[in-house]
Design a binder for these strands. Sequence first.
DNA 1: GCCCGCGTTGCAAGCGCTTACATTTCTTGC
DNA 2: GCAAGAAATGTAAGCGCTTGCAACGCGGGC
Lengths: 342, 342
Amino acid sequence: MPRDRRTRPTRTTPPVPTLADVARIARVSTATISRALNKPQAVSVATRLRVQQAIDASGYVPNLLAGGLASSRSRLVAALVPAIATSMFNQTIESMALALASAGYLVVLGLTGYEEHGAAGTVDALLARRPDALILTRSPTEPQIRRRLRASGVTIIETWDLPPRPLDVAIGFSHERAGRALADFVLERGYRRPLLITHGLARGRTRMQGFMARFRERGLRAPFCDLCEALPFAIDGRARLGMFLDAGRRADVVVCSSDSLAQEVMMEALARGLSVPGDLGVIGFGANEPVLATALPLTTVRIDGAEIGRRAAQVLLMRSQGREPPQRRIDVGFEILARSSA
Amino acid sequence: MPRDRRTRPTRTTPPVPTLADVARIARVSTATISRALNKPQAVSVATRLRVQQAIDASGYVPNLLAGGLASSRSRLVAALVPAIATSMFNQTIESMALALASAGYLVVLGLTGYEEHGAAGTVDALLARRPDALILTRSPTEPQIRRRLRASGVTIIETWDLPPRPLDVAIGFSHERAGRALADFVLERGYRRPLLITHGLARGRTRMQGFMARFRERGLRAPFCDLCEALPFAIDGRARLGMFLDAGRRADVVVCSSDSLAQEVMMEALARGLSVPGDLGVIGFGANEPVLATALPLTTVRIDGAEIGRRAAQVLLMRSQGREPPQRRIDVGFEILARSSA
DNA sequence: GCCCGCGTTGCAAGCGCTTACATTTCTTGC
DNA sequence: GCAAGAAATGTAAGCGCTTGCAACGCGGGC
């Protein structure tokens, strides 16, 4: 093997100090340094002080690759998300990362894209890092992946949904119920001819089905559905509403699968001289901070993405202490924010 | 030490297979497996096949903590960002992560928040992971951190700016020049009384200074500046413009530090019966995908965040092959997108 | 005075890989 | 048919930590 890899760091940097170097300076064994760092209460105050000085003097930064290997606790949390440039889940990841930072955990990102089967390779790449937990923003459907995840033995947290049989722990809400709640909401407000515009991903579909089911249960005629094959953020709301109206169809409220979509729809309505909500109600979905922050008067379904992240952090911290979370399915609910667009 | 940590994975999961297990199955040495995985061309085709079968049979997933420790290449890239819930930099991180994924690299996130000195702890947490590179979205000012970064020997890439003396490699553009370019742009369009609204972070300030400098050079009266102490995404654009106008001041164009800010300003202008750009021009900054995607007719400065990410990936891939990037300061430029709001 | 127990510290065996170097097994050329 | 070099594989020494266990020192109880 290489004689002295410590000189490797490019361009003649002085070698990076190791535990052994610190031990030499502090005149104690490496075990003591390790303990001073990881369970300070096991080390006498005097020694602790000496160790700290040695660390400062040497500029030592622990090598957590080595630490993780030895302890089989990487203090890494893997997050599997479709994207981060434009994503509902960022808030969740961020609040989780923040909640975990003080416990020494870091988040590694696995980007899957929005294709149905984009996750396989990414899952393996993440598992290779031996994370202490894996956060999913979509439950994998492929049995192979599910098996692999289970076999890995790491804590798996599925978020933004509540599958009937979670792989491990799930934190989210029922999209079916959200759909139903929306149906009740629009009916209560007197709307009778809703237009649903949604992307074709599973959750949008599920909400739509909940919505339809409610209408059916009440014996009302089925709402018109515009199920777009485009990705969530790539739907052209103006065009969709335009096409609908141009086809001579009519609606009294538009229920959209995202807030940005709703904004576009609203814009198109206004451009066509329709008043909102007078002539046409508009409802969004997602209400994350940016939309909440603006004074935009959009009626929408608010999901507390940050809360999902905090709960995930809690669960994982419990597991790391060997305790079991009280429940396997944690419902964070949703809330219909009635503002002035519907 | 623990006898058999392989049984650890919670709740009586079967032990996770290791290289040695695969070697046993394939009836070769562990070295051969390692080579088959990391430099396939060094292994005969027949063996490679046998190894692959053994891997499939056992469900082996390499342990990259161990691999990284042994090779001192973690294949981890650390990204230091203020936030991801609402951030200009997500596009950069995402495109970099995507470009690196095929080379087996993963991104670990370090969130610093927007405070001036939030980075210190995060930097150490990231360095402890022994990343092969560190991507910064803001150059650290603290000499201590700069020293630590340099001493670490990892590739450091500063992005979204072009400091005169980069720590290592910088990929970005000149905010000073962007400010000047904006000044020239508004003057060319005949505006003479601009209002600048910006956050108080360094780059916004720099752009503002560039803008002012250009006005001064041309002998024109200084523009009015509204330097807000709020964070970039927390400025209430409607209120800012409102206060300005209510104070009896006048402007013919508003230059904003972000697109979302510009949108709010535009909304307030319209709400006050001012036509845009007839009575008041509005200019944004940042033009990332979401804003580009909408048909929103906002004149703005477009920065190609994705390109910055791709370039970063390139640099780091070169370094990992021992080659030096051709330049230390890579200018990706900016572009003033003249649409219809100014 | 001795023994026990506790609080500290040290010893040293791994954790699961990579890789320099040694060894074995092919190819070739003559 | 054989030597020499190339190609493929094996051997084993780490990489920098963690941690079970042993050793030590000290004070108190009897």
